[in-house]
């Protein structure tokens, strides 16, 4: 009679397996996501041009093995805790600073370090974290062992745990700021009952990190005004639609025209599209992105 039992249990187990697979692919728990590694690659950078560039950086001693490993480990820790795709976090820092944790330090630039933090980014992490996560202290401690706030770009003490020039702190702070952008966009999408894929929203969050939330919302408004709400939801749910929108020069220009003057429009649109291309080539799965 064992074959009968097998005949009954096999379809049940298959159905449960399918259900679990589908849940893990798209499921959300308490606003955070389970990863399927469907969109974001588990190895990075993906595109050969970035692989070659990192090899050259090593050969020219632009980055030491020690610092590279520290960035890698810190990316893993912050990504695991906050639910951020690691390839996205690493590629974002690669794009912002070419992994130079002291970038902008000597030049006295307004934005500095691995994730090119500015005064307003420091302000958000030092004062507004509770608006995004319920227990910032515990979250940060679970990544670094203790709180790192108040954060600063103090050039006198670059090895301090509070310094953005200290690699583990910089990676964690960058991850927190990116996480805030994801939460900000998710809240707006939730309020409007727009369906979205948490993974695709990370890609939009990377845009928001670099160009600000207003730019992303202007693009979303433009998609909805010209193509309808279903098309907007599609851009938040499907990789193809996301790329089709975020790389559409006409759509981007029309969207940004509502915010920026003619003088800045062209350069701003070009920068934004380059940013999307770099994220696509560096962090997205090769089979799907190339």
């Amino acid at each position: 009679m064992n074959w009968k039992r097998t005949l009954i249990t096999l379809p049940i187990l298959s159905l449960l397996g399918c259900g679990l697979y589908l849940y893990l692919r798209t499921g959300k728990t308490n606003g955070k996501m389970y990863f399927s590694e469907r969109l974001f690659s588990s190895t990075y950078p993906v595109h050969p041009r970035f692989v070659e560039e990192t090899s050259q950086m090593r050969a020219q001693h632009k980055i030491s093995t020690e610092n590279e490993n520290l960035i890698q480990v810190s990316t893993f820790n912050a990504g695991e805790t906050l639910g951020i795709p690691q390839s996205l976090l690493w590629c974002l820092m690669f794009q912002e600073s070419r992994l130079n944790h002291l970038s902008g330090l000597k030049e006295g630039k307004l934005s500095t370090g691995l994730g090119q933090f500015s005064v307003s980014a420091f302000f958000e992490l030092n004062h507004h974290l509770p608006r995004y996560i319920s227990s910032p202290k515990t979250t940060i401690a679970s990544i670094l062992g203790q709180d790192i706030r108040p954060l600063s770009s103090d050039i006198e003490n670059i090895s301090s745990l509070n310094s953005y020039y200290f690699i583990p702190t910089a990676v964690t702070a960058t991850a927190l700021y990116l996480n805030n952008r994801w939460i900000q966009l998710a809240r707006i999408a939730d309020e409007r009952n727009l369906s979205y894929s948490p993974e695709i929203l990370w890609a939009w969050a990377a845009l928001s990190y670099n160009k600000g939330g207003r730019t992303v919302l202007a693009i979303w408004n433009q998609i909805e005004a010209t193509k309808g709400t279903a098309a907007l939801s599609d851009s938040l749910s499907s990789k193809e639609s996301f790329l089709a929108s975020a790389l559409n020069t006409h759509l981007i220009t029309q969207a940004l025209k509502t915010i920026w003057s003619k003088r800045l429009l062209a350069s701003y649109s070009t920068e934004l599209i380059t940013h999307v291309e770099n994220i696509r080539d560096c962090a997205l799965n090769k089979e799907e992105s190339l």
Binding site: S120, R214, W260, L264
Partner: peptide, 23 residues
């Protein structure tokens, strides 16, 4: 005001680069 200023920069130009803010 300090809070408002930082919110606006994060909203429009988080890098606080030469692009500045909208009019």
């Amino acid at each position: 005001f300090e809070e408002l200023r930082n919110l606006v920069w994060n909203y429009e130009n988080p890098k606080q680069n030469e692009q500045g803010l909208s009019e």
